[in-house]
């Protein structure tokens, strides 16, 4: 049996990754349902990126189990790649190619037809308001536009699941809001979204979140559940209590 046998988008069981003596991801177990926007919260170095790299087939796990889109991460990583989109925290489209050329490249790699590439290019350009800069090198675009373009390219082949690793880091609040609108559009179209962030306000946009601390999942649930269980008024406060209990003090509302 090579697939998970159910319709869950992502399923992990004790997934672990060590680098020498250091355990980056320590026995994480969670499920993501189809169409869900699932948030991975945590400080830098908490293991979010390592977890995503294992799920996207970029890194072999040390132990544990995981299935993505029904495919086993150990043996079927190339099958997983047909069903997912990925946006790394580092901008990784080609700066020297134009917007159109980048879209065409990935359209070609994902086996889209010429017509599909043309239609989706026009859709992306008009949706992002990039029509006037379609022939400019991507490297010349402002960071916020680059990030929105990177998301659109990750969604180009209409994957079942999209992994977004710190997609909004370094961009201004307005662009962040626009970015989340794009994420919601994808989710409404049925795409499962797994997104990592260290912006606690963004956690509120997710259906469910897991808070990672030192490679472990310290809390998992909907934002409302997590706040209720911790008796906190914000996810920020939940997070501080989990990470630095001594700083949380009297437990009063943070703001």
């Amino acid at each position: 049996m090579t697939s998970s046998g159910d319709d869950r988008a992502i399923r992990t069981n004790g997934l672990t990754r060590t680098f020498g003596a250091f355990t980056a991801v320590d026995h994480i177990t969670f499920d993501v349902k189809p169409g869900e926007v699932f948030g991975f919260l945590g400080a830098n170095g908490a293991g979010k990126t390592t977890a995503i790299r294992m799920l996207t087939g970029l890194l072999t796990p040390s132990s544990g189990e995981a299935w993505v889109a029904g495919h086993d991460v150990y043996r079927e990583s190339e099958l997983i790649k047909r069903d997912i989109g990925y946006m790394s925290q580092r901008f990784s489209l080609y700066d020297d190619l134009t917007v159109r050329e980048n879209i065409r490249l990935y359209g070609g790699i994902y086996d889209l037809t010429r017509d599909q590439i043309r239609d989706r290019t026009e859709r992306i350009l008009s949706r992002l308001g990039l029509s006037d800069t379609a022939h400019d090198a991507v490297g010349a675009l402002p960071l916020g536009w680059k990030q929105k373009l990177a998301l659109s390219v990750a969604l180009l082949h209409e994957p079942r699941i999209v992994f977004l690793d710190e997609p909004t880091s370094g961009v201004d609040p307005i662009t962040r809001r626009q970015f989340w609108e794009l994420i919601y559009e994808a989710a409404h179209a049925g795409t499962t979204v797994l997104v990592t962030t260290h912006y606690m306000d963004e956690a509120e946009y997710c259906d469910r979140i897991s808070i990672m601390v030192a490679g472990r999942i310290a809390a998992l649930g909907s934002p409302a559940e997590l706040k209720r269980d911790a008796g906190a008024s914000s996810i920020d406060e939940v997070f501080v209590r989990l990470v630095r209990p001594e700083l949380a003090g009297g437990g009063g509302p943070a703001q």
């Binding site: 970029l58 790649k81 790394s88 901008f91 990784s92 489209l93 086996d111």
Partner: peptide, 13 residues
């Protein structure tokens, strides 16, 4: 070095 390889590695190429 540029990180563009990772984006290709996550495709079915």
């Amino acid at each position: 070095e540029m990180g563009t390889l990772e984006q290709l590695n996550v495709t079915p190429i």
